[in-house]
Design a protein around this nucleic acid. Sequence first.
DNA 1: CATACAGTCGTAAACGTTTACGGAGTGCGT
DNA 2: ACGCACTCCGTAAACGTTTACGACTGTATG
Lengths: 347, 347
Amino acid sequence: MKGIRQLAEHLHISIGTVSRALNGKPDVNQETRRRVLAAAEELGYVANQSGRSLRQGETKVIGLMIESSKETVENADNFFLGVTSGLQSVFARHKLDLIMLPCPSDEDPHEYLKRMVARRIVDAMIISDTRRVDRRIDFLSRAKIPFVALGRSLSASNFPWIDLDFEGVADHAVERLITLGHRRIAITAPSSEANLGYLFIDSYRRALERHDIPFDPSLVIRVKSSEQGGYQAAHELLLLEERPTAVILIYELMAIGLYRRLMESGVMPGRDLAVIGFRDAPRARFLQPSLSCFRISLYDLGVALGRMLLANMPAYRDFHPGGERNIIWPLELMPGESDAFRVGVMA
Amino acid sequence: MKGIRQLAEHLHISIGTVSRALNGKPDVNQETRRRVLAAAEELGYVANQSGRSLRQGETKVIGLMIESSKETVENADNFFLGVTSGLQSVFARHKLDLIMLPCPSDEDPHEYLKRMVARRIVDAMIISDTRRVDRRIDFLSRAKIPFVALGRSLSASNFPWIDLDFEGVADHAVERLITLGHRRIAITAPSSEANLGYLFIDSYRRALERHDIPFDPSLVIRVKSSEQGGYQAAHELLLLEERPTAVILIYELMAIGLYRRLMESGVMPGRDLAVIGFRDAPRARFLQPSLSCFRISLYDLGVALGRMLLANMPAYRDFHPGGERNIIWPLELMPGESDAFRVGVMA
DNA sequence: CATACAGTCGTAAACGTTTACGGAGTGCGT
DNA sequence: ACGCACTCCGTAAACGTTTACGACTGTATG
């Protein structure tokens, strides 16, 4: 099957009518439409996207840009795939397809994005891993390409984004640990320039100060968000002269390495050191001890992202009216064994 | 910047010349080309992909289809992102872009693939998670769409694929465990219909029989390839009347749940039960006990996949001559603590 | 001096769609 | 008999490129 022309010839009708029939336009006879659809099905005809989008000026494809930097590869995990299903459930209703655009690690994300957008491969964009200052946001705003960002940024004052509630997590975690008697609480932060690190630490600092606990920079451990990073974090914790009694992890799989390094020194997580983690709670439940973890529903997050994006696309705005332009995505604590003790009680 | 026409007008030359200059065609004056390139850079012109691919009949885009089924989401992990970097390093040299096509979980993979291919969004395909019988392979072969599969299949007799050396892994693992004194060796298999499970078990069975150990179906544990699946696998192992002394895991993160369940019953992995795993060795090293793991270089695998694909694309064949049409991808054992004991010695 | 040829560029067709426009046919009321 | 509204369909232009072809120079060759 070559194109709509062959299909039209096969049916002995004009190509215009075939197109209208396939696209559900009103002015076509019921019977004709039936025949066209049947023939298309039979011959396996599907409209060539290049021709269509050239004519219409839109591609019906949404891009989800992800960075395959070394660090992201190590911890991206099921994160994006989880979000993807939520996104697709929203897009499917509008016959929009979602593709993932992995930015090569040796290419500047901003250049990559520009290329993809300029080539008109997608109509709209979802970007992630936003930097503190992120040129992509200015670019997309200026170019008037609909987009949403997964992650806040200082770059533009007003653009649509959803971000995880890092502040809430840090705050909640600190409060909880303090209630359990902890006063010396360490925290891990990513070594990258992603914005989330700053927010996480800031909120941690504020929560501490609310309880008159002075902020100690040596308790902020900058390591990679991976098993290896967890191992290294534990290593650094053990070297501190005054050892903390609790640690907050920014990524749950770090607990694997952390646990190991601790045990190598005879320190038992969940008894000698409290641990609280972040993100994938189902997984955290199976650690030993199970990790107290702030859970996030990736599917729902995807749905929200999709809705917000459509609200910013003129062609779909009516289906997804208003809604907030920014969302701080809440997380839910799933208590585990890793912090289930009071300081000084067992010691 | 609208299109090539505006660019041409701005330069006071014809649109044909502009196109030739940009595309490096020979019959254009050095000085003219310089001016065109400069103007394009300045005005930020990038060719509209729809127009280009409509004319040329190719999109310069390669699709990597991944399934976001529940199970894949849970264990896909960094696997695809790792492969992706290898693929991109190959494609970059030919100005090909890679996009990931996540098949929605509620859509038939075959239908999804057909849609994507018919819409001409991509020139070629890399498919993964091949089924034992996989209609996608017949379809792509018949439609003459260049493709490679990550995973064998029984579907077509002769198509390009690369597959992990499941047989080698199972074989090697069994041999190793037998050398260490084990006679009763369990193994996990995915509950899905992916082909890898069959190969894995088949080879395991053959290796056993080579040593005159009868195959015991109750030692094949069908669980999900996730932490949860590992937990359940351990649970089932503990219920067996004659408990095995070793287990082979098809996915390394299963060890988390497995370890936990074992310890809950006072069984120490690496002392009371030997464990060997599969795939991501850096991560496995940080488990406690560290997991003996068959390592796989995702980047190199991506490079090989990319090369094989290009060898099957007429336009690029000359750059990537011959090469094997099928590759069994070797894996390397990284010994850990999880199987470092001899049966009966410590008991 | 005629011819050939290389170098450079403009012209226009083609790729596969969608869609504005208008025309053919029908039924109905005047 | 005529106009009108309505339904359905065909025609052709347009989207932004690439590229075959031919035209036009200037230079070398016979």
